[in-house]
Structures are given as C-alpha cells and as structure tokens.
Design a protein around this nucleic acid. Sequence first.
RNA 1: GGCUCGGUGGCAGAGUGGUGAUGCAGCGGAUUGCAAAUCCGUCUACGCCGGUUCGAUUCCGACCCGAGCCUCCA
Length: 457
Amino acid sequence: MTELLLTNSAGGGKSVFKPMDPEHIRMYVCGPTVYNLVHIGNARPVVVFDTLFRVLQALYPKVTYARNITDIDDKIIVAARERDTDIMTLTQEFTDKFRQDMAALNNLDPSIEPQATAHVEAMLDLTARLIERGHAYVSEGHVLFDVTSMEDYGELSGRNLEDMLAGARVEVSSYKRHPGDFVLWKPSRDDDPGWDSDYGRGRPGWHLECSAMIHQHLGDNIDIHGGGRDLIFPHHENERAQSCCGYGGSFVGTWMHNAYVDMDGEKMSKSLGNVRTVRELLEQYSGETLRFALLSAHYRSPLNFSKELLDNAQATLDGFYLALRNAGDTAAEASDAHLSPVFSALLDDLNTPEAIAELHQLAKALNKASENEKAAAKAALLAGGAVLGILSEDPVAWLSKSDPDGLTAEVIDQMLIDRAEAKANRNFSRADAIRDELNGAGIIIEDNASGATWRRG
RNA sequence: GGCUCGGUGGCAGAGUGGUGAUGCAGCGGAUUGCAAAUCCGUCUACGCCGGUUCGAUUCCGACCCGAGCCUCCA
C-alpha cells in the first residue's frame, strides 16, 4: 500500500494524505508577482511543488496543478512607472522570463497558470458575495474584509486578533473598522491601472486573486495549497477567510509551506538586498544543478545557500552521470516508479534528502553491477532521478558540457590521440605532460579498457 | 510584547525510545605505468541542565543560542 504522508502546516503534523476525490487531485501553489527577475529563493517552492506534482501524478489518474501569476500589484505599478512603461509590457516580460527560468530548472509546466488581471470579474463577484454575507464593508472607496465576522479567523497561522494587536505593528487606517481588516478592493488614482466597479475605479487587494481563481478553476475545496512559509500570514490566512466566508466549504485539505533559502543564516529577500537571481546563477551552473541543490534539504528546513552547496550538487550529479555513462550503451529496462526506494522516500512528506541517499545507493549498485544486472540497475537509477526531475540529460553530453572559455572537444580529442601514442611508446613523461596540460584546463582524463575518456571537472 | 520553527560528526544533511543514515572532506587498502573513475575498510555526533524510563540524540520541563511571522516577501 503506497500511502503519501504530508505535513499540514495548519496543524496536526504529518498524516496520510486523503484526497477529496481520488480520481482528480487539485493543487494550487502561489506563483510570482512578475515585476522583476526571480531569485533562487523564489525558485524553491516551484521546485518543491513540482516534485510533489510528479509524485501525485504517479499516484493518481488526474492531477490539476494551478500556479498563478500575479500581474497586478502595487510593486508592479511602481516598477512600471520607474521603467516608464505600462504594466502589461512589464508583466509580460517578467512572466516570460519566469517561465524560462523555471523551465531551466526542469520544472514541468503547471496544468493551468491563471493570471490575476484575467480574473478581475471573478474577484469582484467574490467581493460582492462577501459584502452580501456581511463579511465585508465599503469604506472611503475601499472594500475591506471584516475579520471579526469570521469565528476562527487566525486559525491557520495560529494567532488571534488580540495577540496580533499586542505587537502594535498593525497598520491603523481611518477607513478600517478593525486594524486587522484587510483590503479586498482599493481605489486607483487616475494614473494608476484600474477597473470599474460598484465601488468606483480601483484594483484588487493582494489576497483576492487566489481565492477567486481557485474557485473558478478548481472549485470550492482543494486538496493541497502550497507556498513559502512567509505566506502563512497574512496571505493564506486572508485567502482562507475570503474563500471560506465567500463560498463556504473547508477550502483546503492540506496546507504546505516551504522554508526559506538563507544567505549566511539570514533569509534571502529583496528588502535585505542579498538575493541571487536564478538567471545569474544559470550563467555558472546548470538548471539541473540548481534544482538538485534546492532539493538537498528537506522542504520544511531552511537551506543555506552557498557556492559550496552548488559545487557539491554539481559534483554529486557528475557522479551519477558517470555511473550512467560507465554503464555504456546498456538499454535501460522499464522500471516501475512505485517500486523505487526514491519514490518511497518521497512518499514520506517529500523527504528529498532521503531520496537522494537512495539515489546514491542506486548509483553504487549500478557501478558494481555485472553485465546482466546493468540494464535493471541503470533503469532504477534513471527512474529514481526522473521522479526528482533530474538525470534526464545524456550522460556524455552532461560530462562534456560545452565551455565557451575552455578547450574545444576537437582539441581535447586530438590531445588524447597524441597521449595514446605516447603511452603506446611507453613515453610516460610525454603522456603525463599532456594530461597535466588538460588537467590545467579543467579537463579530467580517465583511462579504461577501451581507451581514454574525458570530462570537464 | 505575542506566535512559530530550529540547534546532529570538519562540512552538508536525514532519522530514531535500544546495532547502519547518506554525501563531501580525511585516513588505510584494492585497481592503475602514475593518475582518474570505481570498489572495500575506517575516524569524528546528537546545544546545556534536570525529569520520565531498564535504557533518552529521540518524550517532558527549564535554560542558552539561532531563525522566522505579526498587513512588502517564496
């Protein structure tokens, strides 16, 4: 019996995942606000939930995975103004770049990628419902959610209104009845983007789009809702309030939140100015290496980001690809993902470090395999890699990945021919000099029964 | 101030009421003309103090340290 265990951040710890409809799993993950390039911390939830998407697809006949694009937001308005362009041009550019970056990290496309600006009508409909039901009110051109109208407001994030006010960091505004009330709709100035509504020309508050889009595309109740830890409050708390009060229902079965990518023990964030964009990292490391690095810690633990982390990730992947390459042309047999120890590890709340440990065992088994065991061992390693979204490259291509600053393959091959000739003449000092020269250029030489091969180290 | 998480060997990082994580690095060996790759073996660990228990790194309590959220945030 293959059971998937997941940790619900709404409480209850780790428990067996019970789908609302085993024939159709529905998952929603908060995507980016598209006003600049995403950083490696933004990529973590995408990779984590992509991995979960793969596991779910292996377990259930149909999985709908929605990841939104927030393309209307005050940060977008400011960024567009700074660049002297309109928000559509800006958001289109960064939506495209986000998709490219995420594809580079071997993320599958989500089933649907709803955009906020395409759902303004649905958002206004939800706003009207909330007003109708007495959960929201109009004040000075704003529409606000009345937090006191919801019995268990704060349950998701484990806080209550009194505690929140104790911190006294809550924005107090004249138009709010309660300082904890949050905006559903706010007025736009004439030079701001806006949509006409019963409350005047304005734009949606931050949380509204997710509630409205989940309702429209996935229904009132979904199995899994994911995102970064910092979204628990206020974003997901408020989303939950809107959806539960507007549409009824329990909204989300399992809430999942990933921890941050840290820089020197501090969270990576735009405001701290310690971000590393995916795009700049891709200049130095392959997308697969970045993905593997992000999966090297459990998703609920902080991941400390460093050059060492990435170098280790690359070296480990090189090792896996070496095992695959050394297995030669052996055709991999078909392999059932469900039987993979890698898959079993992932069933335990997406334990990717354990899954990677299993991958090491599979690679070792492949290295030790006899000729008639190779096909199965190779298949097992590839199947294990596939569920993690790695090891999909051709091993030879991976190990000889082109390097514009390095020696070309033609030059290297010629040097190896020269070296082989020197070796044949037992001129080892000449042979070693060639190898040293190649080593100096970052090329590692391996001799074996059939001659010499090379890879970039 | 309120509310959450964490602290595991040189490093990264799982897990568990009682023998193994795993990887990198180190050390020893096999193999090699020498290497590389691979294989075999091997050292180093659970923040601090109490409690529960036959037995605690694991459960409970206090303490120390670190991180996060409290209306910008993955």
